[in-house]
Design a protein around this nucleic acid. Structure first.
Lengths: 155, 155
DNA sequence: CGTGAAATCATACTGTG
DNA sequence: CACAGTATGATTTCACG
């Protein structure tokens, strides 16, 4: 991965749906060459995929929340998968410390959140306790990765 | 927004970089009509944008962490913006309760995280205390929104 | 919402350093 | 091996019905 690859990734992070030909212009190369580089980045897993970003508020999901799920591990295999299947869950992160998992979810409102915690989370095997953080406002939400600094060439 | 729009969004959530003509085939419409719908969804803000998903591990960012930032609000204007500017910060969520903000960040390693907390977060005006949750594993990480249920027509 | 023509783009192939 | 040039077919755009 060289400097031109980084330029391409930077452009794509800025605007993922830019035409290939436009990327080629910006990096000063032929479209075919740029395409070849992008394909290679995809096959190397450096580009993991492409996503549409929908506005959740238009789909009746006005509330975001983080839920810390404390685990009492009798039988914990499958807990993560069970949590991932809960309504509205966008993230399941296993975290160090007593709180075993940190979930991020998007739901309609506090009522729906309460229902989900009671009826879908609490019943999962190994779930001891939950602590919920209601999101009042989101000031930044990106998946951008800073492309500066040393780049691992592994994989 | 009607049922065909929902179908289109569902297809795009599944695979964002699908050619328009393919979407048209799946919903049984002319490509031009589909494109027109997509453009409308974009201008309405229902489609908020498109993203490349890069693999952070290829860019020396092997560690994810959540940081709860407790705020002692003397002068809190600008705190969120200051937090958003911290290295590696991907999310800044204001949360209810004592912990004022929940950050998500991606960094190289625990050493970098420590440095950032000391040198970039702790010095921000209004930051009283932080509690860090190290992510050991991520089982799910999506921005998909469930398109079922009642759809708000507002905006 | 569909059609069709024109512009633009994607991509496979080929040649070149 | 990476890149540019080229040709072909697909896609996007836009005016119009």
């Amino acid at each position: 991965m060289d400097d031109i690859d980084l330029q391409i990734l930077e452009i794509l992070q800025e605007k993922a749906r830019i035409p290939n030909a436009e990327v080629a212009r910006q990096v000063g190369m032929a479209p075919s060459a740029v395409l070849e580089r992008i394909r290679k980045l995809e096959s190397q897993g450096i580009i993991a995929g492409y996503e549409v970003r929908l506005n959740p508020e238009h789909f009746g999901q006005k509330l975001a929340a983080f839920v810390l799920v404390e685990i009492s591990c009798g039988d914990c295999r499958g807990t993560a998968e069970a949590l991932a299947a809960v309504s509205g869950v966008q993230e399941v992160n296993q975290v160090a410390g007593n709180d075993g998992y940190l979930l991020k979810l998007r739901v309609a409102d506090t009522e729906a959140l309460g229902r989900i915690l009671r009826e879908e989370v609490a019943i999962i095997d190994g779930v001891a306790r939950t602590r919920t953080l209601i999101v009042l406002a989101t000031f930044k939400e990106t998946r951008r990765v800073s492309l500066e600094g040393p780049v691992s060439e592994v994989f």
